[in-house]
Each structure stands twice: as C-alpha cells, then as structure tokens.
C-alpha cells in the first residue's frame, strides 16, 4: 500500500480530573504518515504539546497489540474508531485522508467516571468479575486436564466468548450504558465448560446484581455493543445470559 502524508484537525476532550468540567480543545496536526497507528499520531501531538509547555493528552494504552483492553477512545461517535473488529491501538492512519477532522472523546458512562482527559475508571468491570466471574478452584491437584473431554464446538464457543478484552467499548456504544455484552461473555465462557457448571446459577444472579449496583443500564437489544466489539463478541451471549438468569431464578434442584 502506498504511504501518504496528511494534515488533520483533532477535537479532543480535555478534562483535568473527575471533579472538574471538561471541554473540547482543537489541535491541528501536520505531516502524519498513513503508516502510523492512531496512538502514534497522538504521541506526535503530545510531544509537540510538551515542547510547547502544555499538558499532554492523558489516555489509557499499554500493549498496543489489541489484546490488553486498555485503550479506549470514542472517535467520531464510534468506540475504537471506524474499523471493524478493532481496537484503537490497531487503528492506522490510512483510515483517514488529508484534511479530515477527528473528534476524540472518552468512554461516556456513569459507571466509568473520567479520571483525566480520555482516561476513565473501569474498576466496575473488576467488581463484576469479583461477584462470580470465576470457577472456585484453589491451586492444588485438580484432575488430569484430559480427564474431562469437552466437545470441540463447546470449547470453541467458550473460547470465542472468553476472547473479550474487557475494554468497555460495548458500554460506550450502548445508549443505556449497559454492560450486558461484557457480563454475558464471561457467563457464557464459564457456563459452556463442564468445569463451570457447579456455580452457573449463583454466578449469573450475582454478576447481574453487581452490574445493576454499579449503575450500568438495562439491555434493550439494539446490538450497538456487538457492532463495535473489537473481538466480535456476539449478542447471542446476551440471550444465553438471559436464559441462565431465568433458570437460576425459576428452577430449584433441591
């Protein structure tokens, strides 16, 4: 692919901390190569800001390989920008052309308060996992790994759900700020494996209760979450979560 260079206008959300009000600032950036990643373009801007004695833009990022789930930018009205199945760290500037204006905001949700600029607090996700997103097995001597065969289709489906990186794009895209895609991916991952069966009922109940407590909204099945998920997590998982939740609420084995 031919490399080209572009000049852009960025409108970036700036907010000093969680207590103060934020606003948009406009920054021109020049000579951006189409081969740069989006975050490298922000790096270039930040270097300029620092040299000019200004405060650089704070944003979360770490692995820059699309797997740690830390990067989180809402770009022109879409979490992680225009590409399908993609995190912003893997977005490259060949997605843009000379003269474009790009609006960059943080994830917006009550359960994700802004820490600074584009950085938000997603510890609510950790607390949802704490409520039951695990299999209660201590380190020790479990049975041999091959003692319990798992149907390949089930194992593959569990893996597809477990691929969630916990970035929160689903929440950012949802008009209700619901965390159902995130939660359902975890419930599905564990419910499809025999190892996860013993706790499946309490897991679904407790995780949903924690999600509500954190202030995430309800799911109205618009599918916005699935459309922006960088890992292609399917909303079928939400249907499965609803079944798990219903079963947990209605049925009793005792």
């Amino acid at each position: 692919m031919e490399q080209y260079s572009m000049n852009l206008t960025l409108k970036v959300w700036r907010q000093k901390n969680s207590a103060e009000r934020g606003s948009f600032e406009t920054y021109p950036v020049k000579n951006i190569s189409s081969e740069m990643s989006f975050l490298e373009m922000i790096d270039v801007l930040n270097e300029e800001l620092i040299r000019d004695g200004k405060d650089p833009i704070a944003f979360d990022h770490d692995c820059r390989e699309g797997i740690c789930g830390m990067c989180s930018m809402y770009i022109n009205g879409r979490p992680h920008g225009p590409w399908q199945n993609n995190t912003v760290c893997q977005l490259h500037m060949r997605a843009y052309k000379d003269g474009d204006t790009i609006v960059i905001e943080p994830w917006r949700a009550n359960a994700f308060p802004v820490i600074k600029d584009l950085m938000v607090d997603r510890s609510s996700f950790d607390r949802i996992i704490q409520a039951g997103g695990y299999i209660s097995v201590n380190t020790g001597s479990p049975v041999d790994a091959n003692a319990i065969p798992v149907e390949k289709d089930m194992a593959d489906a569990a893996f597809a759900a477990a691929a969630c990186i916990g970035c929160g794009a689903c929440v950012a895209a949802c008009k209700n700020s619901s965390a159902m895609l995130f939660l359902s991916a975890k419930v599905t991952h564990l419910a499809l494996l025999p190892q996860g069966h013993p706790e499946r009922r309490t897991r679904a109940m407790n995780m949903v209760a924690q999600m509500d407590k954190e202030g995430f909204g309800a799911c109205t099945n618009t599918g916005a979450c699935e459309a922006v998920c960088p890992k292609g997590i399917s909303i079928e998982n939400i249907a499965r979560l609803n079944r798990e939740y219903m079963m947990a609420g209605l049925a009793s084995d005792k």
């Binding site: 065969p149 194992a155 569990a158 477990a162 991952h189 190892q195």
Partner: peptide, 22 residues
C-alpha cells in the same frame, strides 16, 4: 504438567480436537 491441569480446572479454553481432548 500441573499447570495445564490447574488451568483447565479454572476454565481456560485451550484448543481441543474432535474427541474433546487437548
């Protein structure tokens, strides 16, 4: 060898073949 047993018990979805084994 214990690591693999432990991880499978935790629900790590390793790749499996059609017989359901790792």
């Amino acid at each position: 060898v214990n690591i693999i047993d432990q991880c499978v018990a935790q629900g790590v979805p390793f790749a499996r073949d059609y017989g359901g084994l790792l």
